[in-house]
Each structure stands twice: as structure tokens, then as C-alpha cells.
């Protein structure tokens, strides 16, 4: 019977951590299904790097060397070819933007069911089942596939665990589809803005669209300064895309994952893609003027109020407390 194929995202010769997690989770599920998990990398990835996927449980690793890394369409071509040649039942992705695009394209091409934001793989009755939180994470829904299934993981949902040893890499030749011939990667991974360090901070003051304007990030900077050493400022994608804050300070699915002792979310709604990057924080305070904002559902202390009022007052109060 067909096994599981896992797409491993790479950049500058390194495999994405979420892809390693996906390989580990798929290998475990494959064991329960009595089948194997294979992995595929796209682009000119070194033998050692690609072969190291074996250490996470992949029993075979394929490489589509000539296909362009960082684009979905060539990867869909590669995965579709492997599906045709090896009759896999399932494809698993670690998530991320490309994971979503490739998974969706593949599902359409091979006629599979697709589940996004999967947080757990389960084996039931000899079949793979995808578990996914829905409705603002208030319920877990299980996806059962009538035939083939494509499961796209949520960022940080799968942990990378070593369970095997490196394997040889098999190169494959892939025919380019019409879609793939019409897309070109001009630049990849451009860093925008200053290089800020948020991963080492004990206290993170994160600002969102609710700050209202780029210059209001000063309110967050002031509060961070009041906390002193070990405090830094971070941001949501919305404000990074708007140019209010450097990309290096972005927290979430396409940014950094952080887990400080204290996380203060100022004017942040709490979208899933933000939550996945900060929910491991020890203490979460949210300041938001909308009492229905999702952020309040996973914060320890919620302030329903205006950041323009609360932040400056809090900065003064922290300074006073520190001075006393």
C-alpha cells in the first residue's frame, strides 16, 4: 500500500525546522500504518543535508535538483510525479506559505482531500486522520480522507525527533508544467529594515496595527526601556508589511517563534498566525480596545483599553516601581 510523502522546505542549504517536524510526525504515523515515510527536497540541496532527513525517519529521500527552490509550481510538479510513480496515499507538509501552496496544488492535481493547519496526525482504522483546530481554536475537527489526503501542518505543531539514520538521495527528473513555466523567482528571503534581536529577550513588547502609526512604536520602545536590560520590541506581520517595523522583529508563522517570560501584546488582534509564534510565552498580557479580540482568549491578563492611554501610563508606573 502507498506510503506518505513529506515535502521538506529548504533555504540556503538548510532544512526548515517545521519540515523536520513533519518528517518525524509522518514517520511515526507511517510506522503505525505499516508503511513508510519518504521525503522530497526541491533545488540544489547537498547530499548530506537531503540525506539527513533519514535521521528524522524518512526511509527514502528524493531530490528534484533542477527545479527552482522557493516556488510552489515546480514543487507541485515534483510531488505529483512522485505520487504517480509510487502511488502514495498521503502528503504531509510542515506548513508555511509554500507548504500551503504546494499542498493545495498537489491536492487539486492528484484529486486528494486537503486539510490545512493540522496540529496532529492520527491513525484510525488503517487510515491517516488529520486533526485541525477550527473556529478560533475552540474545537478540534478530524479530517477523514475518502482516497488520498494532503495534510498541511500548523507552524510549530510537529516536533522534530531523530529516529533513524541518514539515507542515500535519489535524484528525479521532473517535467515542467505550464503553470511552472510561467513563474520566476526574482529574489528570495529579503530582510527588510534593521536587524533587531527578539529571540533572546526576557520581556517582549509586541506592537500591532492597533498602535495606529509607525511613530507610535515609540510607546512600545519606551515600555521596553522601562523594563530595562533583556527587554525588546517585536511586531505583527500587518505592521511589518506596512513598513512600521523591521521584518527581523516579526513574530509568527512567517516570522520568529519566541517564548519570553513576559509578552505584552499592544494593539494585536491575536490571529492564529501570530499566536503560533508566541503562545509558548510564560506570561501574556494583552492590551486591546476590543473586548472580543481573540488575543484575550489566550492571555493571562487582558486590558480592555486604548494603547495610547495604557502604554504611556504603564511605562511611568514600571519606571516608578523599578526606581522604588
Amino acid at each position: 500500500m502507498g506510503g506518505i510523502l513529506v515535502y521538506a522546505l529548504t533555504n540556503e542549504g538548510a532544512i526548515n525546522k517545521n519540515s523536520l517536524g513533519a518528517v518525524s510526525a509522518a514517520a511515526k504515523a507511517a510506522g503505525e500504518l505499516g508503511t513508510e515515510a519518504h521525503a522530497v527536497v526541491v533545488g540544489n540541496v547537498g547530499d548530506d543535508v537531503a540525506g539527513s532527513l533519514g535521521s528524522y525517519g524518512a526511509t527514502k529521500v528524493f531530490r528534484a535538483k533542477d527545479a527552482s527552490e522557493g516556488l510552489a509550481a515546480p514543487a507541485v510538479d515534483a510531488l505529483a510525479k512522485l505520487f504517480a510513480d509510487n502511488d502514495y496515499d498521503y502528503a504531509v507538509f510542515g506548513g508555511g506559505l509554500l507548504g500551503f501552496e504546494i499542498g493545495a496544488g498537489l491536492a487539486a492535481r492528484v484529486g486528494a482531500g486537503i486539510t490545512a493547519e493540522v496540529t496532529g496526525l492520527k491513525v484510525d482504522g488503517g487510515k491517516l486522520v488529520g486533526q485541525r483546530p477550527i473556529l478560533g481554536d475552540s474545537l478540534i475537527s478530524e479530517s477523514n480522507y475518502k482516497g488520498k489526503g494532503v495534510l498541511i501542518g500548523r507552524t510549530n505543531a510537529f516536533e522534530a525527533t531523530q529516529s533513524g539514520s541518514a539515507v542515500a538521495v535519489e535524484d528525479i527528473t521532473v517535467e515542467t508544467s505550464e503553470q511552472a513555466s510561467k513563474v520566476r523567482l526574482v529574489t528570495r528571503g529579503e530582510q527588510r529594515g534593521a536587524d533587531v534581536n527578539i529571540e533572546d529577550a526576557n520581556v517582549l513588547i509586541a506592537g500591532g496595527r492597533g498602535l495606529g502609526a509607525a511613530e507610535n512604536f515609540q510607546l512600545a520602545e519606551d515600555l521596553a526601556s522601562a523594563f530595562g536590560d533583556g527587554a525588546a520590541v517585536g511586531a505583527t506581520r500587518a505592521v511589518v508589511d506596512a513598513g512600521w517595523f523591521p521584518y527581523a522583529g516579526q513574530i509568527g508563522q512567517t516570522g520568529k517563534t519566541v517564548a519570553p517570560k513576559l509578552y505584552v501584546a499592544a494593539g494585536i488582534s491575536g490571529a492564529i498566525q501570530h499566536k503560533v509564534g508566541m503562545q509558548g510565552s510564560e506570561n501574556i498580557i494583552a492590551i486591546n480596545k476590543d473586548s472580543n479580540a481573540p488575543i484575550f482568549e489566550f492571555s493571562d491578563l487582558g486590558i480592555v483599553g486604548d494603547v495610547q492611554k495604557v502604554l504611556p501610563a504603564l511605562t511611568e508606573a514600571v519606571k516608578a516601581k523599578k526606581g522604588s
Partner: peptide, 23 residues
């Protein structure tokens, strides 16, 4: 015509509700 069936809805473990202060 769909390839997927969703079901077996369960509630995830809930994080204890945080304290709320109306400013």
C-alpha cells in the same frame, strides 16, 4: 464529489481564562 469528511469534533484542553481589566 468531495474527498474529505470532517467529524468527531472535540474540545481542546482549555487554557484557564485570563483575568480581564476594563480600563
Amino acid at each position: 464529489g468531495s474527498k474529505i469528511e470532517c467529524g468527531n469534533f472535540t474540545e481542546p484542553p482549555k487554557k484557564a481564562a485570563g483575568e480581564i481589566i476594563e480600563d
